[in-house]
Amino acid sequence: MTEQSPLLTVRDLKVWFDVKRPGAMPWTPVDKLKAVDGVSFDLKPGETLGIVGESGCGKSTLARAVMRMVPTEAGQALWLGQDLLEMSKREMRAHRKEMQMIFQDPLASLDPRMTIGQIVAEPLKTHFPGLSTPEVKDHVREVLDRVGILPNMINRYPHEFSGGQCQRIGIARALIVKPRLIICDEPVSALDVSIQAQVINLLMELQEELGLSLIFIAHDLSVVKHISDRVMVLYLGNVAEISEASQLYRSPGHPYTEALISAVPIPDPQAEREKEVMLLDRDLPSPLNPPSGCVFRTRCPIAEERCGQSRPPLKDLGKGQQVACHLR
């Protein structure tokens, strides 16, 4: 597994947005919102990378930047060695069938005016315009069947399905072009807990069956625990930690990861009562004006003086654990 060359390599990716201060004159310089500020990671074929962080930490923006849905400031995103960010629109379009995306709000990500048959067929029609209508229909039925939607429902509309079913339809839409990577942008956070598990299991099954790579975005660690091989923790557009999942849960390297893990409820009530929750008291600082040095400084329980002076680089702690902290 380790010798395999990565499917996707992201290097020092930066996504900055221009933000106008309210009431600003047209000529005043705009503020830069550093949504993603220098993120690097590798993704191997068949691997699942979980990306975790509070809302506003740039995890969705990171995914959209790789998909070229938001403009990037700097950095590279290499797909099998080719930089996606340098490609022309036409080249990029050809690559889009290899990477698909699943969205947070299952209902909102399906066009309300189209039947689910049309919705699921859309990627196929876009990337394989030569297919005849019956062929398309066969594919649609097959893939719907695979995700657990009765194929005779293809003439129904999204609003006639439940949230979990809509997410299955979203998965079917992503699967139909046989991609190698699926980016799941908080695919279960809008769903009931019982349905969350079903959807995650479905994704894991599909991954096993088709050898997919997954990037699985979530805002808490408990959701990505079962599905991820490795987990990346983001804080204010910076990587706090990238580790093998088992290692990360056993011994979190970064103080922020520790705080996130302590927030995950333990199923045993006795243990739950006794455990110490590390509370992050202050609010998330504004990404418009991030703290100097280590961005986690303002909320870090063990911060020292040098934390404010320089940004901590990602350090390899061994056992597949990389942490950005001066004290580790």
Binding site: M69, R96, F103, A108, L110, D111, P112, H127, G170
Partner: peptide
């Protein structure tokens, strides 16, 4: 999100306008 989804799929802009924006 459904327009975003269409962009992610790689649907060309004019098709997005005709198939997704205008009907809605």
């Amino acid at each position: 999100e459904f327009v975003e989804a269409a962009v992610a799929i790689g649907v060309p802009t004019h098709r997005i306008i005709l198939r997704h924006i205008v009907p809605n």
